[in-house]
Amino acid sequence: MNEVKRTLLEFAVVAAVAVPLALAANALNPEGLSLGRDYFGGRDVSERTKEEVRARLAKKGIQILEHAAVLGLYNDPIYQDGAYTFIDSRSEAEYQRGHIPGAYLCDHYRVERYANEVVPVCQSSLQVVVYCEGGDCNDSELTAEDLFHFRVPPENLFVYIGGLEEWCSQGMPIERGARDSGDIAECPK
């Protein structure tokens, strides 16, 4: 067998061994991905301007909320009594670094971990505000859709599209660590 054929065959053997092993490793990894899940709801990566997000959410009866309205809910005394719920749709690590005070964590990509706690709270809230980092992140939209599928009434569901970026740019505080940890701080510069 000549050297080129031998190398190509070795390449094929390596790939044939590596792929099943990688599949097994992913399956055994608690942080592994679900291969059959459509994580992005079939939407195109480029379709995330505010207008496109608004149009997609409107089809499900979910609305976009601007910063002034979010601030109104946050400062409303009944927020502390649980009438409104803020949902942070980012990863747990990002949430721990800082979230809107009192917000629940519900990461779209790990929604099965949080649904049991978060869905009943959302179902009993007057308004549910979902946010992510802001900018062009669309995790808030995806989490709002998850909550919609978990039968949270769409008329109560809102996406704060400015997200934590806008929250911080307006000088609002964040809470570090777990929900209601009391560790309130300024946003990092």
Binding site: F11, A18, L21, A22, N26, L35
Partner: peptide, 26 residues
């Protein structure tokens, strides 16, 4: 999903093989 799940593990396995000098050309 398959690319994101498998690629890093394939790199780990093949990286380790290359360091050890197993199936070097492949």
């Amino acid at each position: 999903n398959y690319c994101a799940a498998l690629l890093p593990w394939v790199e780990v396995l093949c990286g380790a093989l290359l360091v050890l000098g197993i199936a070097v050309r492949g």
